[in-house]
Design a binder for these strands. Structure first.
Lengths: 197, 197
DNA sequence: GTCGAATTGGACCGCCGGTCCATTTTAGCC
DNA sequence: GGCTAAAATGGACCGGCGGTCCAATTCGAC
């Protein structure tokens, strides 16, 4: 009952090949040069297979991102402090901002590719709820920690602003030059500054 | 000598028509649905004309943005305080953040369209200096004000972070719902918090 | 070994940004 | 007013994109 349907062995093999090819290409080329056709070719499969597996370009990028963010997610929910539960909110926040910056720094091409597709606004502004699960988790964690420490602040919006930095072109460019520490420090400064305002 | 060459009357008329058509379409549809062909049709000119005038999609968006940001630029350099010169840096910063949020709120579609094209990274990471003149001005103004008040901070990076909020999908979505004041307040909070850290 | 279901891959589609160039329009000059 | 060189025009055209389709293949439960 719970086991709805097993994925066939060849399908699983191709899924891995595609994800790895996409990862490799995104690390080497800017995202607009990494077409679905190139990914398929690099993975040694047909274009149809890629779309059959992942539905769309955005779907592929989404799944790739979930994979890359998986370790951080576990460290936050189950790992040791200060990232995991147990430390003071402000310390967890600092640690988390550092960790997020590091993940993003190691995957800048992917982030850019995600951002390009994510902007697609829906006709009615009602839904658009199909937000990216990774973003939702990151945002929920940050805003939760802020709210815990300072219930009087607009935690949700502050969290969006802090995360917004990671989508800014100039900042991503800096990240590409190994300036991760510099960014993490400024983010921490802003966060702690707001908490003490 | 200084007068290199006058723009022909029909050319000027078409330039206006194109800019206005693009503006109108971007206000109504998400940017990925506003193709150059549609803009040309809406302006009543041929596609070739649009490209002859503006060179590329990015070029059109750039010129549109410069136009929309023109009033703010003048208010900052020549207008009365607190936006213009004369007030204390921290007050000018608050006023400027408010004003920028308002401009962006009135042009969210345009901003998104700009962002999509702006991500195009160059092969060598060397140049990419062809940054958007509006962004350069906004960033220079903010970081200048921060540096004036607190020379010990990483003013350039802080300015990038504050501006980065305006490119964040979720935040732009909020702006579209008239939450401009809420955003402006949080930005001010972060800025003043950092200045007093 | 059989057979239905899942998977596969590449031809195909509509559309995009951008180029090209034969034709038309403009405006300075007599 | 006509003349003419230069500027402007617009639509056919190009390569490539994301995405669809479906006949042929492959898998694995029995």
């Amino acid at each position: 009952m719970t086991e709805v349907r097993r994925e066939r062995a060849d399908a699983a093999r191709n899924r891995r090949a595609i994800l790895e090819a996409a990862e490799r290409l995104l690390a080497e080329y800017p995202p607009e040069q990494v077409s679905m056709e190139r990914i398929a070719a690099a993975a040694g499969v047909g274009k149809g297979t890629v779309f059959h597996r992942f539905g769309s370009r955005a779907g592929l990028m989404r799944e790739l991102m979930v994979e890359r963010a998986h370790a951080l997610r576990e460290a936050v929910t189950d790992g040791p402090p200060p990232l995991g539960p147990g430390a003071a909110p402000r310390d967890r926040l600092s640690a988390f901002l550092d960790a997020v910056v590091e993940v993003v720094g190691r995957n800048k091409g992917l982030l850019a590719a995600l951002g390009e597709t994510a902007t697609a606004a829906r006709d009615s502004d009602e839904d658009a709820r199909e937000q990216h699960s990774v973003y939702r988790f990151w945002h929920g964690h940050i805003s939760g920690l802020i709210a815990e420490e300072r219930p009087d602040l607009d935690a949700e919006l502050l969290a969006h602003i802090l995360l917004g930095a990671l989508r800014s072109g100039p900042i991503v460019h800096l990240l590409g030059q190994g300036e991760a520490r510099r960014l993490a420090e400024s983010l921490r400064l802003l966060a702690t500054g707001a908490l003490e305002a």
